[in-house]
Design a protein around this nucleic acid. Structure first.
Length: 292
DNA sequence: AGACTAACCTGAAAGC
DNA sequence: TGCTTTCAGGTTAGTC
């Protein structure tokens, strides 16, 4: 699922497809929760606007427009932002990424019922598409100066966090450390995969009470978190379920996972089978021997 | 404060 | 084989 690295990879690849271009047409699917701003309103507001910047805040993407309005995007669980006409996207969007037949790889994506937003530009170049099978993603238009509770709630971006940020958030807290890591108001951008990976690197069980995490462990936790986030960024993110890059490529970080989705497989450090348990209402993976 | 639940959504996987 | 049930999870909202 898209977390900080996937969203940042998306931002980097989507930037040149958006920034500096003027919107000529907008096509959408029917109104749904996907559209925080109703599709017709959205289309009206975007028409004729030029995109000035594309930035990331936690798992959100924020496009600034030339009228000082902003377009807020969230990929949710299965969101895919990409350029139209690139080969193979439809097939790559299926889970598990089985091997593709060569003739299928050359097949270009055509908008389907899950393609909720299509943006066309005045330069006639490639369209930008937002596809989301489960519709957990969000699109919202923000007027100039309009605040957004979603954005305002976010804590420090996980890549910018300092040990003191995590330390102060854990002091005296009874909730488990995994829940705290997933709390976007504490560290923005962390999701299930990287929380589990970071906890493994720090040797801390996801079920441990946050207040019981020592200063040294907290330090290791944040260092481990940044390490896995940076490494994932460098490998193009994790293409575990539906994530694809705007250019159609797949990330490779899933090959480097230490615990996430490795239930029953041997721990890479001690060979003990990785355990999966429901913690903080999330599937949580850890090594029962390496993490305490 | 925070644990828990429901809701949203669909396709894959598991169950029968 | 084929139909049915379960499951996955980011975020918000609401209850206790």
């Amino acid at each position: 699922m898209p977390e900080l690295p996937e969203v940042e990879v998306t931002r980097r690849q989507l930037s040149p497809l958006l920034v500096g271009r003027t919107i000529r047409a907008v096509a959408t699917t029917r109104p749904s929760r996907f559209f925080v701003t109703p599709p017709r309103t959205l289309a009206r507001r975007l028409l004729g606007r030029r995109v000035l910047t594309l930035e990331r805040r936690g798992k959100y993407l924020l496009a600034r427009l030339d009228d000082d309005a902003r377009l807020l995007l969230h990929l949710g669980m299965t969101g895919q932002l990409f350029a139209a006409g690139i080969p193979g996207v439809r097939l790559l969007s299926s889970t598990r990424g089985s091997a593709l037949a060569p003739e299928q790889q050359a097949e270009a994506f055509r908008p389907d019922s899950h393609t909720h937003l299509i943006i066309r530009f005045s330069d006639g170049g490639p369209d930008v598409l937002f596809r989301d099978v489960r519709k957990f993603g969000r699109v919202q238009w923000l007027a100039a100066g309009e605040s957004s509770p979603r954005l305002d709630r976010l804590g420090v971006d996980a890549l910018q966090a300092r040990p003191a940020d995590l330390w102060s958030a854990t002091r005296g807290r009874r909730r488990c450390i995994k829940a705290l890591l997933l709390d976007q108001s504490v560290l923005a951008g962390v999701g299930n995969i990287y929380a589990d990976e970071a906890l493994f690197l720090a040797g801390v069980r996801p079920s441990r009470r946050a207040g019981r995490v020592s200063r040294a462990e907290g330090h290791r936790l944040l260092a481990g978190l940044k390490r896995v986030l940076q490494r994932s960024l460098a490998t193009g993110g994790s293409s575990i379920s539906d994530y694809i890059q705007p250019g159609g490529g797949r990330g490779r970080y899933q090959d480097e996972r230490r615990v996430y989705g490795r239930t029953g497989e041997p721990c890479r450090r001690c060979r003990t089978p990785i355990v999966r348990r429901l913690i903080a209402q999330r599937g949580s993976h850890f090594c029962p021997r390496c993490q305490s």
